[in-house]
Design a binder for these strands. Structure first.
Length: 467
RNA sequence: GGUCCGAUGGCCGAGUGGCUAGGCUCAGCUCUGCAAAAGCUGCUACAGCGGUUCGAAUCCGCUUCGGACCUCCA
C-alpha cells in the first residue's frame, strides 16, 4: 500500500490527520486479517511548487528563504512535527517512509525512460510530460473521470507565458537558476524534480510496477494521482499500475473544506488545549480519533463542538464498558448474548469498505451486553466473557487504534500512592454514608469532582474513576 | 464556465428497493439519601415536486440549496 504523505513545509492540521488516520485503519485492519502489509508513505521534501506557473517557487525553498534556514532544517522541523502528531493520535508508522530528495537518481532515470518512450520533451533545461502525446496511446483522466478535450477547453490561465507546449503538460524536471536553494545536477542541467514524479518513482521502487492499494486525500485525485498513473505507464508500460485507489474525504468546518488557505484549520495542539476561537474546550487525541471514525472515510465529515462532545461521551461509555468487562464474573442463566454473532458483525462492518461507523454501532451493542451482564440481566459464561474481551481488544484497540487514555503526569509509584489515597477517601465516605452523614459524603464527592475524580455509588459499594 | 458529489430526526452520522443503524442532546420513568452510572420510553427523520414499482430515504427526471475538483492542497 502506498499513501501520499505530507509536504513538510508547515505544521499539519486536523484535515491532514484525517487522511492518515483513514489509512491507518486500512493498515491496521489488513494486518488484523493476517495480511503482511508493506505500507509506504512518503515525505515530500522537494519539488512541491506554490503554483503551476513557471515562476512557481518550491514550497520548502520558499519557507527556507523566508525564515533564513537551510531547506533541510525546514524539512527536519516539520517532519518531526508530523511524526509527533502521528504519535499523539496513535497512528502507526509505515513500513517505509521514503523522501523525494533521497530518490533524485531514480527520478532522473524515470524521466529518461519516459523521454525514450516519447512522452516527454525538454525546454530550456526543464522536462515536461506531454499529456496530449500520452493520451494518443493510453487513457488519461480515467481515474478522475475527466476528458482531455474538456480539460483543454477549461484551462484557467491562458496567458501564453508558459514554455510548456500544452497547458495540460506537467513538469517532470524543473531547471533551477543559481538563486534556488535546492538543486541537483541532471542530464538537462541543474534543477529539481517535479512534484508528481516522486510518488510514481517511490511506489514503483518499493512496491513494484503494479501494486494493490494507493491512497491519499480526495483533493489529490486530480491532477496528482492522474499524473502518477501517466508517469508510471509512460515509464514502465502497462495500463493500470494501481489495483485499488482509495481517497479519503475532506474534514470540513461549517461545511467548508479545512485548508490552510481558508484559515479555518486547527492544529492538533489547538484542539487538545482548546485554545482556538471556534473551540469551547480541549479534547483528548483519542476523542478526536473516535470522532473522525464515527464518519465513513469516503464522506465529508463536519467538525463541530457538539460532534466532538458527543464523541467524548460515546468514547467514555466504551471505555467504561471495557473496565466493566475486565472485572466481569461468569454467570449462568437464560438470557445470554451471542458473542460469536457480535464478533462476526464487527468483521462484516470492516469488510464492507472499512465501515467504521457501523463497527462502532456494533461495539455499542456489545456494550449493552456487558452492562447488562454487570447488572445481572444478561448471563455470560467464562467463554463468552473471554470472547467479548478478545473482540473488544481486537476492534477497539487494535483495529480502531483507540488506546486507553492515560492519567496525565506522575510516575507509576506516585499513581499507586494516589490510588491508595483515593481508595481510603472513598472508604471514609462510605462510612459517612453509613452514618447518614450526607454533608460529609457530598463534600467529599464534590471536592473530588472538582479534581476530575468521579465517584459512583453502586449497590456493591462506591468506586472512583478519573475524567 | 466545465466535471463530479452531496442534501437523513434537536445535533453528528450510517444505510441503496420491503426488516430498530448507532452516538449525543432534551423530557419522563426505574434504581438511588441526593447525584452519577446503568436501563426503559418518547422527541412521529429521510430537501421539494413528479415518475417507475405491489412497495422508494434508496431507482429515474426536474427544481432549490450546499460542497469538491478544474491552480497548491490530505
Amino acid at each position: 500500500m502506498y499513501v501520499c504523505g505530507p509536504t513538510v513545509y508547515s505544521n499539519v492540521h486536523l484535515g491532514n490527520v484525517r487522511t492518515f488516520l483513514t489509512f491507518d485503519i486500512v493498515y491496521r485492519y489488513l494486518q488484523h486479517l493476517g495480511f503482511k502489509v508493506r505500507y509506504v508513505r512518503n515525505i515530500t521534501d522537494v519539488g512541491h511548487l506554490t503554483g503551476d506557473t513557471d515562476d512557481g517557487e518550491d514550497k520548502i525553498g520558499k519557507k527556507a528563504r523566508l525564515e533564513n534556514l537551510e531547506p533541510m532544517e525546514v524539512v527536519q522541523r516539520y517532519t518531526n512535527d508530523f511524526h509527533d502528531v502521528m504519535n499523539v493520535f496513535n497512528i502507526l508508522r509505515p513500513s517505509i517512509e521514503p523522501t523525494a530528495t533521497g530518490h533524485i537518481v531514480e527520478q532522473i532515470e524515470s524521466i529518461l525512460r519516459i523521454m525514450t518512450n516519447g512522452y516527454a520533451y525538454e525546454v530550456n533545461g526543464s522536462v515536461y510530460f506531454s499529456v496530449r502525446k500520452f493520451s494518443e496511446d493510453h487513457p488519461y483522466g480515467e481515474l478522475s473521470g475527466r476528458k482531455i478535450d474538456e480539460l483543454m477547453n477549461n484551462t484557467r490561465d491562458l496567458d501564453g507565458q508558459s514554455e510548456k507546449r500544452d497547458p495540460l503538460d506537467f513538469a517532470l524536471w524543473k531547471a533551477a537558476d543559481s538563486s534556488h536553494l535546492m538543486q541537483w545536477p541532471s542530464p538537462w542541467g541543474m534543477g529539481f524534480p517535479g512534484w508528481h514524479l516522486e510518488c510514481s518513482v517511490m511506489s514503483t521502487k518499493y512496491l513494484g510496477e503494479t501494486f494493490d492499494i494507493h491512497g491519499g486525500g480526495m483533493d489529490l485525485k486530480f491532477p496528482h494521482h492522474e499524473c502518477e498513473i501517466a508517469q508510471n505507464v509512460g515509464a514502465n508500460g502497462g495500463e493500470r499500475p494501481v489495483r485499488y485507489w482509495m481517497h479519503g474525504n475532506m474534514l470540513t468546518v461549517n461545511g467548508r473544506k479545512m485548508a490552510k488557505s481558508e484559515g479555518n484549520g486547527f492544529t492538533p495542539e489547538e484542539l487538545i488545549t482548546g485554545n482556538h476561537k471556534l473551540l469551547d474546550k480541549g479534547y483528548t487525541p483519542m476523542t478526536v480519533r473516535f470522532f473522525m471514525l464515527m464518519g465513513h472515510y469516503a464522506s465529508t465529515l463536519d467538525f463541530s463542538n457538539e460532534a466532538l462532545q458527543a464523541a467524548e461521551k460515546g468514547l467514555s461509555k466504551l471505555e467504561k464498558a471495557m473496565e466493566t468487562l475486565a472485572g466481569l464474573e461468569p454467570t449462568s442463566g437464560e438470557a445470554g448474548y451471542d458473542v460469536q454473532a457480535f464478533a462476526d458483525k464487527c468483521h462484516a462492518a470492516m469488510n464492507d469498505d472499512f465501515n467504521t461507523p457501523i463497527l462502532i454501532a456494533t461495539l455499542f451493542d456489545g456494550v449493552k451486553a456487558v452492562n447488562g451482564a454487570a447488572a445481572g440481566r444478561v448471563a455470560l459464561s467464562a467463554e463468552d466473557i473471554a470472547s467479548l474481551k478478545g473482540t473488544f481488544a481486537a476492534f477497539l484497540r487494535d483495529v480502531l487504534g483507540l488506546q486507553a487514555e492515560r492519567a496525565s503526569g506522575g510516575s507509576e509509584e506516585v499513581a499507586g500512592e494516589t490510588e491508595a489515597l483515593l481508595d481510603l477517601i472513598v472508604d471514609m465516605r462510605t462510612t459517612a454514608k453509613a452514618n447518614k452523614d450526607w454533608g460529609t459524603a457530598d463534600k467529599i464527592r464534590d471536592v473530588l469532582a472538582a479534581h476530575g475524580i468521579t465517584i459512583q455509588d453502586g449497590k456493591d459499594g462506591s468506586s472512583w474513576t478519573r475524567g
